[in-house]
């Protein structure tokens, strides 16, 4: 799966996600709506596109995973900026929604560091990095990931296991707690 041609699609999906997030919060449903529902609603809306530019559902989900990674990492970065006490960045409404999706306690994952580690992993094993993107950011199951990458579920599981271990180790190395 090459990166270049999906660029425009990612932009669209990303815009759609942001828009939906804003709308939900404005309707004051933030408390009851699950962030995941929001993503899936975005999926559904884009799937209904009259002239789909993606080959099939899994191709689309794969693109959405890239968008999700970008959206979440950007949010995490913005939150981090606020917390470091710099100039008070205006926290938009969807930040509240996403903050609730990823609580900032010690157990939660530093998405910015994870993103950096994942970029390193891409250089070593692009497919494994892609699997993490699909599974973790895209929320795809093992089977769906296998389908999206045209490999067997067993291969996905193997790659997933070692990629997780590698990332975990990488995060521990970089974390200065």
């Amino acid at each position: 799966m090459t990166r270049e041609p999906v660029g425009a699609l990612v932009e669209d999906v990303y815009a759609e996600l942001r828009q939906l997030a804003d709308r939900y919060v404005r309707r004051e449903q933030a408390k009851s709506v699950q962030a995941t529902e929001l993503v899936h609603e975005a999926y559904l809306r884009l799937l209904k596109d009259k002239s789909p530019r993606w080959r099939n559902r899994t191709h689309f989900l794969a693109i959405a995973a890239i968008s999700m990674r970008r959206l979440l990492v950007e949010r995490a970065r913005a939150r981090g900026a606020v917390k470091r006490g710099g100039e008070r960045v205006q926290v938009t409404l969807d930040e509240r929604l996403l903050a609730q999706a990823a609580p900032d306690d010690d157990a939660s994952i530093d998405l910015v560091a994870l993103d950096r580690a994942l970029t390193s992993l891409e250089k070593i094993d692009a497919q494994q990095a892609r699997i993490v993107e699909l599974r973790f950011f895209g929320g795809l199951s093992v089977e769906e990931t296998a389908d999206a990458l045209s490999i067997s579920p067993a291969t996905v599981k193997r790659h997933w296991t070692i990629a997780k271990a590698w990332l975990r180790r990488e995060l521990q190395r970089t974390t200065t707690r």
Binding site: Q34, A35, T36, E37, V39, H40, E41, Y43, L44, L47, M68, R69, L72, Q100, A101, A102, P103, I109, L111, V132, R135, F136, F137, G138, G139, S141, E144, K164, L167, R168
Partner: peptide
């Protein structure tokens, strides 16, 4: 930590991800 990354990024705590359309 075998549970690391097992819960997708957008999943809310406590509930599994909503697999709408899946």
């Amino acid at each position: 930590d075998e549970a690391f990354l097992e819960r997708p990024a957008m999943a809310d705590t406590g509930t599994p991800p909503a697999p709408i359309g899946h």
